[in-house]
Structures are given as C-alpha cells and as structure tokens.
Simulated assay, not measured.
Amino acid sequence: MTDTALATTPHRRTKSLVLTTTITAGAVLMALPFYWLIIATTYPSSEIFSTPPNFLPGDHFIQNFVGVLTDTLFGRAMLNSLFVSLTYTVLGLIVCTAAGYAFAKFTFPGNSLLFGVVLVTLALPSQVTLVPLFQLMVSIGWLDTYQALILPNLALPFGIFLIKQTMTAVPDELIQAARIDGAGEFRIFMGIVVPTVRPAIAALAIFLFLAQWNDFVYPLVVLRTPEAYTAPVALATLQGIGTTDYGQLLMGTFLSMLPVLILFLFLQRQFVAGILAGAVKQ
C-alpha cells in the first residue's frame, strides 16, 4: 500500500466518524420533541411541566386516552378527519393525475396559457381565497358540510404541476404504439401512464392527505357544529380559556399524528422516489 493510500484511510475514517456523529446528533434532536410528547401523554396535567422534566413513562396514559375520547368529541373528530382526508386524497389524485396527463401529452388551444395560470396560482396564499370561498359556500348552502372541505381544492396546483412534470418523461412513442394497437385513451392512461408514474402519485397522495389532515383555518371558518369538527379544530377546543387539561390536549395531539406517521411509513419509498422522479435527465 502506498503512502498516499495510508494517509487517505485515516482521513476517510475521521470524515466518516464526524459525519455519522453529526447525523446521529441531528436525529436525536429531531426525535426528542416527539419522545417528550409520548412521555407527556402518560402523566396528569399537573405533572407534565414539572422541574426537572419527566423523561420516563408515567401511569396516566389510559386516563388521558379515555378522557380525551369520552369528555370531548375528539374521537368523532378523528373519524371526520379520516373520512374527509381519504376522500379528498382519492378524488384529488384522480383530478390532478388526469389534468397532469392532459397538460403533458395533449396539444390543444390554450395549453400553455392554462398551465401558466396553474403556475401563477401556486404563488397565491390560501388566505387570499378564504373570504370569497366562504361567501361561495354560504351562497350555495354548503356551510357546515363535508363537501365544502373536499370539493373546492381538488385541482391542487402543486399536484397538477408535479404530475405534469413527471408524465413529460413518459415516452410519446410508447403512447403512440398503444394507440396504433387499438388501445383507447382510458386504457392507455390506466394501463401505461399511471403505472409508470406510480412513485409520483404516491408522493402526491401524501401531500394531499397532509394538506387536508392539517388544515385548520378553513375548516374552522366553514364548520359550525362540534359534531362536524375535524381533528385540528377539535384540538383547538381542548384548550380552555381558564384551565386546560394538557394531558388530554397532548394525548389528542399524539393521536392526530398517528395516521400521518402510518401513511408516511407505508409510502416512504414511493415518496422519496416520487420526489426524485425527473431529477436525473435521461
């Protein structure tokens, strides 16, 4: 072994050790708040903010769990959020995937103009459309309904943009060959295009689910009855004006995180592949 190789090996080991230590420290710092949240759900409200803080599990988990489900309508709110988020995700995938396919593989008058409008709407904050959207829901009688939460934002501009850019990489020759063989557009779309861009669709599914699950302001404005509340709105009602049961509040926060964690763990490979799709040009 040459002197250069001998000098390089300790340098690589040191660099690897520093990198591993840095990543481990960062992972611990990121995981610490979640660990404290889980530990806090096992203590009564009076002991959560004790000094020094508790980092070992307590014995109040069942009481907080039963309390947040029985003393409030949080269990109903979780079911409402699951229904709204899953329905919105499925319908949003259909709309965004079909729109992205049309923009990517069809030539029609106004194609570039319409796609430019989609890109412009990406720069608009949701607060800009809050009041007009609320007035529209009132005028058509959709106030305090689930369709008011699901239907207005199905054509998510980011989703259309993501799918369009991903479908651009699908070879046009493949689609033309299928048409020559007599395949219809629906069969081409479902049998060739959709399986090809499945990672991007999985990534979009996570984005759509998160967008609906975590939405707080719009459901707070549209929904009127506690029975129709979604999880974020119900969490806000757990914080009282005078006193707050932080054990139940943190338990509700923990429960509201579980569906998101399960979804991401189930689709994490497809999510990473979808984000990287198109990053390397063939």
Rank of each mutant, 00 (worst) to 15 (best):
V90E: 13
I140N: 07
P53I: 01
N214D: 13
L122I: 11
F115G: 05
A155F: 11
A123F: 14
V18T: 11
Y35M: 12
G278R: 02
I175N: 09
L29E: 07
Q282V: 10
I241N: 13
A231K: 01
A183K: 05
F108E: 10
V131L: 15
T107Q: 13
T243D: 14
G58Y: 01
T72K: 10
F271I: 02
T89F: 10
M251S: 03
T145A: 09
A31N: 05
A211G: 13
A277M: 10
S139E: 13
A155P: 13
I201G: 00
A178F: 09
A234M: 11
A5L: 14
P219I: 07
V222G: 02
V217F: 15
A178P: 07
L261W: 10
R224E: 15
L261I: 14
F115R: 03
L37N: 04
S256Q: 06
T70K: 09
I241W: 13
P33S: 04
F271Q: 01
P57E: 01
T72C: 08
Y218N: 06
G75R: 08
T2F: 10
L143N: 05
T145G: 11
P125A: 01
S126C: 00
V118N: 05
T20M: 09
T166F: 09
L79C: 09
I163R: 07
P132I: 01
